[in-house]
Design a protein around this nucleic acid. Structure first.
Lengths: 359, 359
DNA sequence: ATCCGCAATGTATGCGCTTACAGTAGGACG
DNA sequence: CGTCCTACTGTAAGCGCATACATTGCGGAT
């Protein structure tokens, strides 16, 4: 790392001009074979790796796509990076209490999808998880380094997004489509919930149902609630007869609300606007010895892995998260290819997955 | 996106020089407040976002760290990106057969750790999953864009790694330390396996045991096997009395080997060099109605989530994957701060986790 | 009143690469 | 044997920013 060699160094060693070096790397066919070999040999000899930044600057294109999502604030950042080379390997017994919520799973999958699609299209991926105050600065920073940016809904202020969007295409992930000029990619929240609730109310003939919504400011959540109401309507149930609780998408809160509901009355079904919440409700029901699905039906939304392993397994609406990531990148590259495109809103299909909690 | 504004545009509008604009952004205190306000107002008005590439070029430092790992070749790349806006929401019943192996979990966690650490140190993270032939080109490309690179062991040829390492610090993840001049970060494979095997042979007094190793070229696997042998030795068991099968870390292969083992004789314990393999063995045992742990003990290695949910749950050695990611970034930044540092090898501690398959 | 020092800006250069445009040499052609 | 074209290769001009260095005011010291 003494000092990274540049085109100039390579050119000198190969007795050619820097333009030729560049050509060998970018369009090898434009250079005579003997020259090319000479250059490549110099490249190898010197350990030359072209500077992506210089290239991007000259070419006016970075070939990188950015992905921004909310960070894992909660993780234990302080864990020691101890050198202890495992002289002592502790043995612990896992009685189930160690199971921590690994709920970034959602983003992991979106990320994977984005990565796949980016790779296919010859883009690299830059990821940034924003936390706290530095968020805005980070977004701005990233925006300066990429050709396009995918942002998770509600993680960045509209104002900043608008600012950034003047420079590069921005696509908002998993937020409902709004007329804000950005491209949107989301899942079919409303129809998904409607279908699921339709199953609860129809196939099971339930009328005594409770709904637990998510945070007030989530557009996805709003759509789900709308879908639920549509299902109520279809089933001929008066909306005002059905209690709607306001949760916040966490399991913890799901438990709290579950307690509150049961303190008053045990409904035949609890429909939750996400899986985490539903898992919290299951916790409470199990603790009280109330049988699911015999006594109470429970449903979630999202299709997280934990729902496949819960007791009982959780009926839910599965969102295509990998596809979301892919679609986001796709939307960006599409706009890159044709900047005149009108703002698009892509809604990906979902799937109702019936499991034990509401067969 | 008509044409992104530059420092020049901002400077003109604020009636200052480009140097002042740059200063306002980099070291605000060096500029008089009134001037600063004028510049910021121009920044907002024009929607100016500084070019990260130009900056990196001028500053000779990108503030980005790269992470390279093997790609998800296997994923169904062809899945349609259909526009179908969920008019029809399919309802499917999940009887358990849908459970696909989401085994990139390992990388997801490493990635998360790297992300956290990078963020703390003011670096952005660029990820690339390489597949097939494009791998080498990709690594080279990435290397030209970052200040340091973390690479998963055995995903990139030593030759290319050496080439790249002449330009930037490179740290190899999860490969045993070798005297190759690179920094290494890995988990305590040998001692971990030794402790686990010690438990099997000691606490359970097992003597009739079989070992299923991983691929020949995995240094991690070699260390585990060594650890296993050390445990045999300690227990006074003659090494040649214990059959060692060669697997490839996949569940599929674990099943195949499990069949082969059982066709011949049912041992008291099967020690596997990773969780996937162990899960495959569990599959076979369950299919044959052989009870675990009553008839046969089974152990894995890695601590993947699936092992917590398997039937029975899987005893294993847990690797600190998030920590691995963090440590990798840490190593890179350390070397960036002091390039004269000698090559380091960090070995992170592991933990034996006892679950139902071998309590 | 003169000089010095410091704060605030401006000037100018270069980071490493791409790429239009300008040669240059050799062969085909008339 | 001169002309043109083709195939290569070189020349030079940025890309957008950071920063060393020069310049300009201004208040305080002398």
């Amino acid at each position: 790392m003494a000092k990274a060699p540049t085109v100039y160094d390579v050119a000198e060693r190969a007795h050619v001009s820097i333009a030729t070096v560049s050509r060998v790397l970018r369009s090898p066919d434009a250079v005579r074979e003997t020259t090319r070999d000479r250059v490549m040999e110099a490249v190898r000899y010197l350990g030359y790796v072209p500077s992506g930044n210089a290239r991007a600057l000259a070419a006016r294109r970075t070939n990188v796509i950015g992905l921004f999502f909310p960070g894992h604030d909660d993780l234990d950042i302080s864990a020691a990076l101890s050198q202890s080379a495992g002289a002592e390997v502790p043995i612990v017994v896992d009685d189930g209490s160690l199971v921590q919520e690994t709920e970034n799973l959602y983003f992991d999958e979106v990320l994977r999808g984005a990565e796949i699609e980016a790779w296919r299209r010859g883009f690299a991926l830059m990821v940034a998880a924003g936390r706290g105050a530095s968020r805005e600065a980070l977004v701005n920073d990233i925006a300066g380094r990429v050709d396009g940016l995918a942002v998770l809904a509600r993680t960045v202020s509209d104002e900043l997004l608008a600012h950034v969007a003047r420079r590069i295409p921005v696509v908002v992930l998993a937020g409902s489509e709004r007329d804000d000029g950005f491209d949107h990619v989301s899942a079919s929240n409303g129809p998904g919930m409607r279908a699921l609730a339709g199953h609860v109310l129809g196939a099971h003939g339930v009328r005594d149902v409770v709904y637990i919504a998510g945070p007030e400011d989530s557009p996805d959540d709003a759509e789900r609630l709308d879908g639920f109401r549509a299902a109520l309507h279809e089933a001929g149930i008066v909306e005002s007869d059905v209690p709607v609780y306001r949760g916040d998408f966490t399991r913890e809160r799901g438990r709290a609300i579950g307690e509150r509901i049961l303190a008053y009355h045990t409904p035949r079904a609890v429909v939750c606007s996400n899986d985490q919440t539903a898992l919290g409700v299951l916790d409470v029901l199990e603790a009280r010895g109330i049988r699911v699905p015999d006594d109470v039906l429970v449903t979630g939304f999202d299709g997280i892995t934990a729902g496949r392993h819960s007791r009982p397994t959780l009926t839910t609406v599965h969102q295509p998260m990998v596809e979301l990531g892919r679609a986001a990148v796709h939307a960006i590259t599409a706009r890159l290819d044709d900047p005149t495109l009108a703002a698009q809103s892509l809604t990906l299909p979902v799937q109702v997955v019936l499991r034990a909690s509401c067969p």
